[in-house]
Design a binder for these strands. Structure first.
Lengths: 194, 194
DNA sequence: GTTCTTCTGGACTTGCTAGTCCACAATTTG
DNA sequence: CAAATTGTGGACTAGCAAGTCCAGAAGAAC
């Protein structure tokens, strides 16, 4: 399928509108008519750009949202080489998710998972990237002697991913960020060797 | 609404059948006809026992499943008073969720959340109970001098909840329990004062 | 045992939604 | 400009699923 610049723009508009809409609504409850209304497009266009229909659209949205999760944490995530940068990252993540509340891209992604199977792979890849970035930070801290060398960077990074992920999940359910902050702080303390 | 013993049994059969079915399917994709087929009941019965229809049924299922999450972790959860009991608990949780894979009550609950609002409260209550139980374990370890006293039991318990929750979530998405184990071990190490 | 209540089955209605189809508009290409 | 391609709108279909309704069976009550 060839796309002119205009077509590209429309396709993008659909993805972004659908993404935003999905952040506030369960994927099962979002209809193509909703998407059309939000993005000012017709059924014809949606199927023109997403021949696989709803499933294809959701997958495209998933990929779009997955991209945003990590770039939202920049520039912190790529430069975890001092204690200041780690805490700055912590603060950025907490603030970000507090502000979003329920309108959470990552959470919306998780919700999509049970509906369309392809989403699971997108999430798996996202988590892997995330973990790699954190791992790099741990290694860099070890290289400069700020973190003890016997720590396993892989497992530490894995724990961070789980803790943040869980904290966000709890935040979505309860509206409170206590668990997210507690998990983050505990893990940072651990890193410091407290 | 009065229920004879027979009625009770039928109602229970519907809840349990629906619960099991929901563990493997997205709530939006589960129809009342499915539930009827699985539990060998008719539409009439479902609406007889759940006048609020699907939403009421889902809520009843949520409550049912929430009850199971904590009792599944017994007797460990109520007796976190020695290092052996903590690691036994860890092993039980990891084994449990590894075995379940995707058929996870807690995860299914989270999925329901975006569809029916009432579920969020059920989850909030469940998480609170869970956190209280862990907190009690931390306090008990402090009382016997096995954990340093300056640790905040509330925040520590909150971090545990987030870590486990996140680990389980990752397990559901990727099928791997690495993150769950890593988070658990990191937090236990932290508790030990490593 | 008859009368009242609860339980069960399933046909039916109603509304909604994914997906189709096609006519027409805009844009590119040569 | 003419022809081909790409973009847009919206009416229409088909099927599904929630919820209604009621007739009758099974069981309680006395």
């Amino acid at each position: 399928m060839k796309l002119t610049p205009k077509g590209q723009a429309t396709r993008q508009r659909i993805i972004e509108g659908a993404a935003e809409y999905l952040r506030g609504n369960a994927p099962g409850a979002v209809t193509l008519d909703d998407v059309g209304a939000v993005t000012r497009t017709s059924k014809g266009q949606i199927f023109h750009y997403f021949p696989d229909g709803k499933e294809g659209l959701l997958l495209a949205v998933a990929r779009h949202e997955a991209g945003g999760v990590l770039t939202d944490q920049e520039p912190h995530l790529s430069a975890l080489d001092s204690w200041e940068s780690w805490t700055a990252w912590r603060d950025a993540v907490v603030a970000r998710y507090q502000a979003q509340g329920r309108h959470c891209p990552l959470g919306a992604l998780m919700d999509q998972m049970s509906s369309s199977p392809g989403t699971a792979e997108v999430i798996t890849e996202l988590l892997a990237q995330w973990q790699r970035a954190i791992r790099a930070g741990v290694v860099s801290m070890q290289a400069s002697g700020q973190v003890r060398a016997e720590l396993d960077p892989d497992r530490t990074a894995a724990a961070f991913v789980a803790g943040i992920q869980g904290g966000v999940q709890v935040l979505r359910a309860t509206g409170r960020s206590d668990q997210l902050e507690a998990a983050f702080d505990l893990m940072l303390d651990y890193l410091r060797g407290a």
